[in-house]
Design a protein around this nucleic acid. Structure first.
Lengths: 350, 350
DNA sequence: TTGTAGGCGTTATCAA
DNA sequence: TTGATAACGCCTACAA
């Protein structure tokens, strides 16, 4: 005893309240079985051209849209991945999400985004929910680029940590290669002819700050150049620190012709202080930032060269690893992805 | 002929590759039927205390997690909503998403976030995918606060537009009350004793800019105060414009004691220029911004007062409207939500 | 109180 | 080439 309200079905496209057409409806309208309809719609073989056309027409008429849930139920895969973040402003998660979207293809996979807001309890809630929804994989994005607690071993789905690595070496993590980025920044400054290069960066409790500094030192050493200021200026990730550190630097070492800043905000402060001292950027002192956060780089005077962490790539690779993990084991350990340099006027060659 | 690999089931918690336990498995382990197991787990009546305990224990042992998809299939609701955005940096979507998460409750509803990147084709793709996944509702977030094309009438699910209203008055849109926000900003400046208030804002092609300006004018008129500078300074949403406009303003009208900026970035430029002219903020000139974008407001010297658009609230209300639409019509037209004032030092009372 | 059975929308395996 | 039919995992009448 079926309960189809046949009358409205055909013209159902108009009525928002009407339940969406099912494969059953399509099959009935086309006068075939659901099996045939399914084959026809999925482009499988063993369906006559005429039948296929009729089914397609019926589907069109009913505005048929296959129920992905039901499909996932039988397929054992949902085509959804979970993105677990603590990124309050989305500056990290959105690019990573876009990269993941690109890797999978928009119509193959959707992303469930959950913001834990740095709260472990909430993170656990979200995790349970996502597993309950049978996501095919999980990407965990930390709020700062330092190791964070693992969300657990032996989860029923593959997990990739992006930006912030997992503290558990058994997990797979994808992070920016901060050391290489530091080298990249300094090499660029050297290539545009600078030899007295200083480094002003943020909070020393950030591992990334040390990594970038190490890269900078490595490159300087390789080129037999000193570090202007003799030391790395650690402080905080703020414009104010960029200003203060620059003033400090200038009083102690006048012979500086380039500054590598640990973030774009710091670079802002650096440029500010340089201008305050009557120095021109880039003529007297070239400046390069980090993050390539457009609201800062383009608002800067002059526009700020910066290191881009390639977050979209991070998301794309994370998605690729998850996809590969569907048939095959997921690796372990931390993978370092290269950053790229975006040159703007603040390091323009004279 | 069932294919259960019973041996591993009980200790399956350890094996990531093992398929997740089903209600069937739990029932079998507890020695009851699936129906009973279902009732026990869902806290329904007509289950003896002992049976319930046994079922719960079995579920625990198997690390059972109900398959939300299967549940959704029978319930006719998925517990997922789609968030369709064009917000490249997530500054808008993430707060709105968090508001929606709060409204629904983390374990009741999950959010599928799709970024169309301003591309209509891609938006259509995402829309189809979301409908195919049978989301219970849709929130559409535009990139700028002006009317945007509707994604279509007669969709099978309720749709709420947030931040950017739909151009179709039949749709339901939730936007910030920019007029009221303009009044709010100016009223605040008056309350701290200012009487010569100017307004520097962004691109005149933005409706929101005009709305805020109108609110500002209304409030000034209500208090019988003139608009300093005689006109609203429209320009661009940039720091540079804030600087230039301020210089312009100061050359023409020295007697300004407060500036209402159309964005925090503009405010940044305004403060810069004021300092450049030897004026103190807030002693000589008070400044208030718009957006309450923390990276700008707290980096500012002095910290910048600003208008917060309450995006979380926007998301929360959007979610509430969607929830209400499950049983009942959605309503149409544009709803204006109040903004709130965040006072910081840039408008501190002397 | 418990269990049986039907159905949610699809896909896949067989027969026909 | 087509069409029954059995899953997929769960819920909910209804029957026992």
């Amino acid at each position: 005893m079926t309960a189809w309200a046949k009358g409205t079905a055909v013209s159902g496209e108009q009525r928002p309240s009407a339940r969406p057409a099912t494969l059953h409806d399509v099959a009935r309208l086309a006068g075939v079985s659901v099996a045939t309809a399914s084959k026809a719609l999925n482009g499988r073989k063993h369906v006559s051209a005429t039948t296929r056309a009729e089914v397609l027409q019926a589907a069109d008429l009913l505005a048929y849209s296959p129920n992905t849930l039901a499909r996932g139920l039988v397929a054992g895969r949902t085509g959804m991945i979970g993105l677990l973040t603590s990124d309050l402003e989305g500056r990290l998660s959105i690019p990573i999400l876009m990269g993941a979207e690109d890797a999978f293809g928009v119509d193959r996979t959707s992303v469930l985004l959950c913001d834990a807001r740095g709260d472990t309890i909430r993170e656990g809630h979200h995790l349970r929910t996502l597993l309950s929804r049978r996501v095919d994989g999980l990407i965990v994005v930390g709020a700062r680029p330092d190791p964070r607690p693992s969300i657990g071993r032996d989860l029923p789905v593959p997990v990739v940590y992006a930006y912030a690595p997992s503290a558990d070496p058994q997990d797979l993590s994808l992070v920016s290669d901060n050391v290489a980025a530091g080298r990249l920044a300094v090499r660029h400054l050297i290539e545009i002819g600078r030899t007295r290069i200083a480094h002003i960066t943020g909070d020393a409790s950030y591992g990334a700050a040390h990594d970038r500094a190490r890269g900078a030192r490595d490159e300087l050493a390789a080129q037999r150049l000193p570090l202007a200021g003799d030391r790395v200026y650690f402080g905080s990730w703020s414009e104010a620190w960029g200003r203060n550190a620059t003033r400090l630097l200038l009083t102690q070492h006048t012979a500086v012709d380039a500054i590598f800043a640990g973030s774009d905000q710091i670079a802002r402060g650096v440029i500010d202080a340089l201008h305050g001292s009557g120095l021109d950027v880039p003529r007297d002192v070239a400046v390069i930032g980090f993050d390539n956060w457009e609201i800062f780089t383009t608002a800067s005077r002059p526009p700020l060269s910066s290191i881009d962490m390639n977050l979209e790539t991070l998301g794309r690779v994370a998605a690729e690893r998850l996809a590969a993990a569907l048939d095959g084991p997921l690796g372990a350990g931390t993978e370092y992805l290269p950053c790229r340099l975006i040159q703007r006027e603040s390091t323009a060659t004279a």
